[in-house]
Simulated scan of single mutants.
Amino acid sequence: MTQPKLYRLVGADGSTVASPTPGTLGGHRKTRVYGRLDCKAARRALGTGRSYEQQRVFFADEATAVTAGYRPCASCLPEAYAQWKAKGGK
């Protein structure tokens, strides 16, 4: 019997959790920004070298990313970013 593939996701408390379901959002641990997996800004950054890739994290959903202390990407999530900024995000 084969084991199901497990994906490493970041949980609401910031710890890494194993999940049989891949993440729906990607993020960057150092800048604490999350966004869509097809984000143009993230793809550009991934193309610049391994340092970005090593800081890449994944989330099951937006609520988990926010609870873990990440903010929305201004490039791929402009509405969520505007709301975050209006609430005093820095």
Results as ranks from 00 to 15, higher is better:
T2V: 14
Q3T: 15
P4M: 05
K5R: 12
L6R: 09
Y7A: 06
Y7D: 07
R8E: 15
R8F: 15
L9R: 07
L9G: 13
V10Y: 08
D13L: 08
G14M: 04
A18P: 12
S19P: 07
S19D: 05
S19R: 05
T21Y: 08
T21G: 09
G23I: 07
G23W: 04
T24F: 14
L25W: 06
G27W: 04
R29W: 12
K30C: 14
T31C: 08
R32N: 06
Y34M: 00
G35A: 01
D38E: 03
C39S: 02
K40W: 10
K40P: 14
A41S: 02
A41E: 06
A42R: 02
A42G: 06
A42V: 06
R44E: 10
R44G: 04
L46Y: 12
T48V: 09
R50V: 11
S51D: 06
S51P: 10
Y52R: 07
E53V: 13
E53H: 14
F58N: 06
F58K: 09
A60Q: 10
D61F: 09
D61N: 09
T64Y: 07
V66M: 01
T67F: 03
Y70F: 00
R71A: 01
P72T: 00
A74L: 11
S75E: 13
S75W: 10
S75C: 13
C76G: 03
P78K: 04
A80I: 10
K85M: 05
K85L: 10
A86W: 03
A86D: 04
G88I: 02
G88F: 02
G88P: 02
G89F: 00
K90M: 02
K90C: 03
